[in-house]
Simulated assay, not measured.
Amino acid sequence: MKEKISLNVFFWVALSFFSAHHSFGQSFHKYRIPKTDVFSVGIGPSFIYSDNAGDFRTFTFEWNPALTVSYTKRLGSQFGIQTSLGAQQLVTNGSTNPGILALWERSGSAARFRGTAIFADVVPILYVIPYKNHFERPQVNLYGGLGIGVMHVFQTKFFSMNSDEPKSKGNISTGYIPLRGGISFKVGALTDIALEGTVLFTFSDNLDGNANYNSYNDYLAQAQITYKRFFNFRKE
């Protein structure tokens, strides 16, 4: 009887050990399958550089939030293609110079504006430290790239600094060249946290309803904390 009980106990212990070992093996095997896709979401402060944005020499310009969601397909050990969709709130401070305000009034240009930019772009990404698989990636890495994108801006334009001034609504679309780069930190088996900076060099000088006051097109700048998660689409 005792022998039968001992055999039963041994059988159940062995079965439990085998099941645990099998589950661990499956989990380990699943972990070792290379993840070639990366989902990212980033949020942080941003600003617009434009004719009526404010005085950048004295830092009297507005910071506002920006959000970006991205999908990256890794291509080999050092390259990837990143597709991004995002939104940025836009607010300009105008000017306190009476001469500049009079010039804008005569030309029918906006003294200040508020709006929202919706943007989408594709950027080839270069990783400074190459790695073959997500589980072999370094603790810290640098990355960056230059691409092409399209943007649509919803505008609310004000033609004086007076808060009672009637406003005018409009919208504008333009292309842009995104310059994106960052530093990423490995914080988990499939997770990175990155500090990412982006500049969107647009092809328009009229995002703010004010064109040709300076000699540069308008551009958007963003600084974001980005969460990155490795995965793949194929069935594991």
Rank of each mutant, 00 (worst) to 15 (best):
S50E: 00
V122T: 10
L15Q: 12
F10P: 03
F56R: 03
V41W: 07
L220I: 13
N97A: 03
Q155I: 06
S84I: 00
I172P: 02
V123S: 06
L85D: 03
A20W: 09
G99L: 09
L179H: 09
V38H: 01
G175F: 15
H29P: 07
F59N: 14
S70Y: 00
F47D: 05
F79M: 03
N210Q: 07
S160W: 00
G209S: 05
L126V: 14
Y49S: 02
H22E: 09
T156F: 09
W63T: 14
Q222D: 04
S77L: 09
L220Q: 10
F201T: 07
A102R: 10
G145Y: 00
L85M: 02
D205F: 05
L146V: 13
L142T: 09
P178I: 03
G80S: 02
K157R: 06
Y31P: 04
S16I: 08
V13E: 15
K2M: 10
F28E: 13
I193L: 15
P166K: 06
L220T: 09
K132Q: 13
G44V: 02
K235H: 14
G182C: 00
M161L: 05
L200Q: 13
P166F: 03
N141I: 06
R112K: 12
G86T: 02
R74H: 07
D51F: 02
F24D: 12
G197Q: 01
Y216D: 10
H134V: 04
V199A: 13
E196C: 10
A189F: 13
V128I: 14
F203T: 14
L7Q: 15
H29W: 10
Y176M: 08
N97H: 02
I100G: 03
S160F: 01
F203D: 12
S46Q: 00
S19G: 06
T72R: 04
A110P: 01
V38C: 02
N162I: 04
E165T: 15
S168E: 13
S19T: 11
G108Y: 04
D208N: 06
L207M: 14
G115A: 06
A211I: 11
T83P: 06
T60Q: 04
Q82F: 03
K235I: 11
F135E: 10
F10W: 07
V150E: 04
